Computed example of a mutant assay.
Amino acid sequence: MKKILLAVLATALVAGGAASAPTAVAAEPYPGTVMTSTDAGGPRKMQAGKRPKSSVYVKTAGNGRAVGTIRVRYQHKASGTSRFKSVAYKGKRVTFFGPKLAKVGPWQIRAIFQPKSGSVWKTSRDSYSLKVIKKKKKKKR
């Protein structure tokens, strides 16, 4: 009789949740789990000494809007010279002017999306190439 009473009591406790371990709340975010993809673009050719106009957009899985920082690196392919630019990202396409590029030749522009710490978004990146050509000489009249 005692065994049956204990079995019924144990079953009632487990079914009622009193003897179960606390569970994680389902609404808690899981940092770095939602995929993102960065789309960077700008001019493919420009004159030396000018500032390229770049734009960056971060696409997300689902309908959320990613928030974080975009860090753009302008790197000359032959010499390895680099210039950097950082801008805040709040879910919409960001358009900005980069640094003046004086060296002639091909440049690699790489945009990296870094989400806010503790957010559900993953880091993503994209790149494109830009060719800097010599300045046009002014004609004398």
Rank of each mutant, 00 (worst) to 15 (best):
M1T: 07
M1L: 08
M1H: 06
M1Q: 09
K2P: 00
K3L: 05
I4H: 04
L5G: 03
L5P: 03
L9A: 11
L9T: 10
L9D: 04
A10P: 01
T11S: 10
T11F: 06
T11R: 04
A12P: 00
A12K: 01
A12Y: 01
A15C: 07
A19F: 12
A19M: 13
A19Y: 03
A21I: 12
A24S: 14
A24E: 14
A26H: 10
A26Y: 12
A26V: 15
A27H: 06
A27V: 11
Y30K: 15
Y30D: 14
G32C: 13
G32L: 12
T33H: 13
T33R: 09
V34N: 15
M35Y: 13
M35H: 12
T38L: 08
G41S: 07
G42E: 07
P43C: 12
P43H: 11
M46W: 06
M46I: 03
Q47A: 10
K50F: 09
P52T: 00
K53T: 08
K53A: 14
K53V: 11
S54V: 10
S55I: 02
S55T: 02
S55R: 15
V56M: 05
V56C: 00
V56W: 01
V56Y: 06
T60P: 02
T60D: 00
A61W: 03
A61V: 07
G62Y: 08
G62R: 06
N63F: 14
G64I: 12
G68A: 12
R71K: 15
R71Y: 07
R73I: 11
R73A: 14
Y74S: 10
K77Q: 08
A78I: 01
S79E: 07
G80P: 02
G80N: 06
T81Y: 03
S82R: 10
R83A: 13
F84V: 13
F84R: 07
F84N: 08
S86D: 15
S86A: 11
V87Y: 07
Y89F: 09
Y89P: 01
Y89R: 09
K90Y: 14
G91N: 10
K92W: 11
K92C: 02
R93C: 13
V94T: 10
G98L: 05
P99R: 11
P99K: 10
K100R: 15
K100G: 03
K100D: 05
K100C: 00
A102M: 02
K103E: 15
V104D: 05
G105R: 02
G105D: 09
Q108M: 10
I109K: 00
R110V: 04
A111Y: 12
F113R: 00
Q114M: 14
Q114K: 12
P115L: 00
K116D: 00
K116F: 05
S117Y: 07
G118T: 13
G118R: 09
S119F: 00
V120I: 14
W121L: 02
K122V: 10
K122P: 01
S127P: 02
S127Y: 14
Y128A: 05
Y128S: 08
S129Y: 13
V132N: 01
V132Y: 01
I133N: 05
I133F: 07
K136G: 14
K137W: 09
K138G: 05
K138V: 13
K138E: 11
K140C: 09
R141H: 12
